[in-house]
Design a protein around this nucleic acid. Structure first.
Length: 435
DNA sequence: TCTGGGGTCCTAGGACCC
DNA sequence: TCTGGGGTCCTAGGACCC
């Protein structure tokens, strides 16, 4: 049996953890640049604020008079990431074969082959996470991941009856859950597929399952066929375990405003490239390709729009910030055009492979080892003091490109400080052990 | 006038996820 | 005024080869 643990309204729950005055209020967390709603409390959902809604359109959904009731917060992803690590480590210690699927979700295997025992174990797990981390979690379990997703939704929607845990442990429970699940709520069925299925008279998961497998395969693609099989209880992912190493690493931002200065966009590119390189090294990998893109403001019809990207292959795959920034700047020089306003840019690393596997040019070797030692030293300093303690000189422009964050929760700043202290001390302990 | 058949590899773009 | 960021997988179609 697959279990799925899913944190309830995760980012909002994190904010509430450090600012209990938010409890009971409609709260939304906004994406970078305070652009879109990326998390909503139950109260905010009940008011009709949709997921992904641009912040300036909230009033359209709830009415201007209610706007002041909604607490809007700028996202603090480092905080959410740290809390996520605590939950995942607790799950990792309690469960078998943990697969962290996203910042707020993880799959694992039910420990007993017995619904009553499993249910008891999972209820205790929900309580344990709430007691030690303070985040409410819902858990669903079922024969496949896709069904476990549906089960966790049921658990989340019905906290009173399920107390946070719901299992699809036999065929009749599965059949009745599929009846009540709209096709668009099935994991893997997005907007386009929903439209295509509606056109064929399929509105629920139960109707979808009735379709013959051969017809599904001929009408759609293999991914849809897998979803179809998973809903019928056939596990399609067992053969392909979740991959651990990334195949691409990306860092990009929408700028706080329209930027025309070459120097300023370039500073952002250097920052992104350096950030990607750090992540690459932390995963023990090297990249063979660097991609850079820039784009204007797609919503400004009064201005000429320009968007372009350039991809360069490295002579030898590398994880050195110096090398990757060098290539990123070359790519940037190919696509930057004076006279346009830029609203977004990003760097992506591709052709990622384990550092151990690279074939090195004999003449590169000495230089490569030198750069490796330099990068290790920089990473150690940045890990110990702050991620910004050392960075390349070219990133220090005016920072005009940095996104706006007008809604940082001030009342939570002091507690965040205490919280960071705890995390740092944990890291130190780990380090002392390894050193 | 009239242009095969079969295979591989790569890339761009679409669709999906949180 | 204002519209996120970071991923994965699949497919169609082009380029190339014999």
């Amino acid at each position: 049996m697959y279990c799925l643990a899913d944190c309830n309204n995760f980012f909002v729950s994190c904010e509430r953890l450090y600012d209990p005055t938010l409890n009971g209020k409609p709260v939304v967390v906004l994406s970078n640049n305070d652009g879109c709603v990326i998390a909503r409390s139950n109260e905010a959902k009940a008011m009709g604020i949709p997921m992904g809604c641009p912040a300036f359109q909230i009033k359209k959904h709830i009415g201007l008079a209610n706007l002041n009731d909604v607490v809007q917060l700028s996202a603090r992803h480092t905080l959410y990431h740290d809390i996520s690590l605590r939950i995942m480590s607790l799950l990792g210690r309690s469960c078998e074969r943990l697969e962290v699927y996203s910042v707020d979700e993880a799959f694992f295997q039910a420990p007993f082959n017995n619904p009553a025992h499993d249910e008891h174990f999972l209820h205790e797990l929900v309580q344990k996470i709430y007691k030690y981390v303070g985040i409410p979690v819902s858990i669903g379990y079922a024969p496949t991941r896709t069904l476990a997703k549906i089960a966790s939704h049921i658990a989340k929607k019905n906290p009173g009856t399920t107390r946070g845990v719901y299992g699809l442990s036999d065929d009749s429970l599965i059949a009745s859950a599929l009846e009540k699940t709209a096709i668009e709520d099935v994991w893997g069925i997005g907007r386009r597929l929903t439209e295509a299925l509606h056109n064929r008279g399929v509105a629920t998961a139960a109707q979808f399952v009735q379709y013959p497998t051969s017809l599904i395969r001929s009408l759609f693609n293999i991914t849809v066929a897998h979803t179809h099989a998973e809903l019928k209880g056939i596990d399609c992912t067992a053969a392909s375990p979740v991959t651990i190493a990334h195949k691409s690493i990306m860092n990009s931002r929408t700028f706080g405003g329209l930027i025309t200065s070459r120097k300023e966009v370039q500073a952002a590119i250097v920052h992104f490239a350096e950030h990607c390189s750090r992540q690459l090294r932390s995963e023990g990998s090297v990249a063979g390709t660097v991609m850079v893109y820039v784009r204007g403001d797609r919503y400004r019809e009064d201005l000429p729009f320009y968007s372009n990207s350039c991809q360069l292959n490295l002579a030898t795959p590398s994880s050195s910030s110096l090398t990757i920034v060098h290539y990123a700047l070359q790519a940037f020089a190919c696509i930057f055009k004076e006279g346009y306003g830029y609203r977004k840019a990003g760097v992506m690393l591709l052709n990622i492979q384990p550092a151990k596997s690279i074939q090195m040019n004999l003449f590169d070797k000495e230089d490569h080892n030198k750069q490796n030692r330099l990068m290790q030293a920089i990473d150690r300093i940045n890990n110990r003091y702050s991620t910004q303690a050392i960075n390349l000189a070219s990133t220090s422009a005016t920072g005009e490109w940095k996104p706006r964050q007008k809604h940082l929760n001030q009342s939570a700043q002091s507690s965040l400080h205490i919280y960071s202290g705890m995390v740092v001390s944990n890291k130190k302990n780990k380090k002392n052990l390894s050193e």
